[in-house]
Amino acid sequence: MTAIPSAGGRRGALAQGMTLAWRSLVPLRNEPGRLVQFLLQPIFMVVVFVLMFGAMSGDPEHAARYLMPGVLTQVALISTNTTGMNLAEDIVNGVFDRFRSMPIARSAPLVGRVTADALTTAVTILVALLAGIAAGFRITAAPLDALAGLALLLLFTLALSWVSAWLGLKAKSVASMQGTATAVLLPLTFGSSAFIPPDNLPGVLRWWSSVNPVSHLADAVRALLTGAPVGTHVWITLACAAAVTACFVPLAVRAYTRRIR
């Protein structure tokens, strides 16, 4: 019996994950039409929320300062949808069966998917930010603070993409995954302080917006980009991201290894 180098070894697993991340990104090059989703959607959000809703308020510049960090939060979190949808598609199409029959690390397909989606999310955030700047938004914080704000957003998005992964691995079809993810994401993003301060909301909406973790995220991102005091928002956001990651990475990995048809 010869000792074959273990394909599931640590270095192997990382390389396999990167190969699968490449595989997730290559369709964008094959079919540039797919890029529209990553480019057009953030621009559209900036136009609607910053320019149009901003014009409704008496002070568009002030509105942009409030709304733009909210738009960044919104587009970043909505982009996590793709993680679960693509995983559900891989399962339905039998692509995962092929991976599972191969001598590769069990984690590689998940790591590859999440890595690729983190990259596209980063691009989405950047496009939204550039569109926002074109629309009159100014980063008024120190560069390091602003970077920390974007990093925090990306970190939280990454945590949420594991929830999306878990939903995708549990879903019976791509459409059902999309439905569940939308039902989770819309109340989280719109029902937060991303676009409207909780104080301005009535009854239940106000309560929900004040307990919603995304409100803390949006407030933290806003404070870090505009140089306002961050208060406890950063720590609460980090704690939420850590909790979500700690729960949903094992859940997603288990759903993946147990996914049997």
Partner: peptide, 8 residues
Amino acid sequence: YASVDEKL
């Protein structure tokens, strides 16, 4: 069911 990645 042919399990190739259709986008590749």
